[in-house]
């Protein structure tokens, strides 16, 4: 199975409260924040690796995992890290970070997929900077492929994937025939979330994503990484959605500390009037 995994770098999500909005309100300032891979994309990569291996022998890839990102030269760090983790090959679509929207990314990915012909695209359900949750769905529509969004588990069958999705108030389980798009949710990296046809049903993964070992980091430098110009994939680069202004959220002041349950209940009743 050949899997394409799109990756995006985002400003360190654990410090998202440190993003700043200048007085002019015309942009978001992330200076001083480290770039990290979008966590959902890391989960997507882990799911793709699990789908292309026997869990017992994770160094042997059955199939191919190709990672792709959009951005300037420095985003190759994100790709190299993914190659060290186990991806086979990488593509950087050369562009600046700020000249993109979900629609343009989806259109460029669709054009890339016409060339690469993967069996599955596994991607994060959303990037934690824009929080839009859209590219996978738009891409599926452009390709006329079936999709399974917000996947919590994936089980490979011959020519298909059985995916359980977390929906409001329950779980929807679906079968998508390949080629297909899967967008992943948090729990896709739990020990029993993803099984290829090669992995025994009794096998349990470690919780979370795998990390690259030092020799793999060295070897990753030799793996193939090619650059494609965005213009070669999308002639029309007009954005459909633009952000011309930003606002800081209203600051929430810390309240008071109460000394005991009695004071809490009294204040909730008499002061906040919510009981």
């Amino acid at each position: 199975m050949k899997i394409l995994v799109p990756l995006k770098r985002v400003a360190d999500p654990d410090n998202a409260n440190k993003v700043k909005i200048p007085a002019a309100g015309d942009k978001i300032e992330t200076t001083g924040l480290e770039w990290k891979p979008n966590p959902f994309d890391e989960y997507a990569l882990e799911a793709a690796l699990r789908l292309t291996e026997n869990g017992q022998t994770p160094k042997v890839r059955a199939g191919e995992v190709v990672v792709v990102t959009f951005g300037p030269k420095e985003t190759e760090q994100t790709l190299r890290a993914a190659l060290a983790t186990g991806a086979d090959r990488a593509i950087r679509i050369d562009t600046t970070d700020d000249k993109l929207d979900g629609d343009l990314v989806a259109r460029a990915l669709a054009a890339l997929i016409e060339k690469e012909k993967p069996d599955v695209v596994v991607m994060g359900k959303q990037a934690v900077d824009g929080d839009s949750n859209q590219v996978g769905q738009i891409l599926a529509e452009l390709l006329d492929w079936p999709m399974a969004t917000f996947a919590a588990t994936i089980k490979e069958e011959a020519g298909a994937l059985v995916v359980s999705r977390e929906v409001d108030g329950g779980v929807a389980t679906m079968r998508v025939k390949l080629p297909a798009i899967v967008t992943v949710d948090l729990r896709i990296v739990a020990p029993t979330s993803v099984y290829s046809t090669k992995t025994a049903a009794t096998f349990k993964y470690n919780d979370g994503v795998r990390f690259a070992a030092l020799p793999a980091i060295m070897a990753a430098k030799k793996k193939l990484l090619v650059e494609i110009k965005l213009a070669d994939l999308a002639a029309d680069q007009a954005l459909k959605v633009e952000y011309k202004a930003f606002q800081a959220p209203p600051a929430r002041k810390a309240g008071i500390k109460v000394k005991d349950v009695t004071e809490l209940v009294t204040r909730l009743k008499n002061e906040a009037k919510v009981l």
């Binding site: 979900g102 989806a106 839009s132 949750n133 859209q134 996978g136 769905q137 999709m147 459909k240 959605v241």
Partner: peptide
């Protein structure tokens, strides 16, 4: 923007070649 809306609406946007503002 329930699980239903988040799943369906971007796909509709793709079909209409329209911009989508989420959530």
């Amino acid at each position: 923007a329930s699980a239903f809306g988040k799943d369906l609406l971007p796909r509709v946007a793709g079909r209409l070649a329209s911009g989508y503002a989420a959530d």
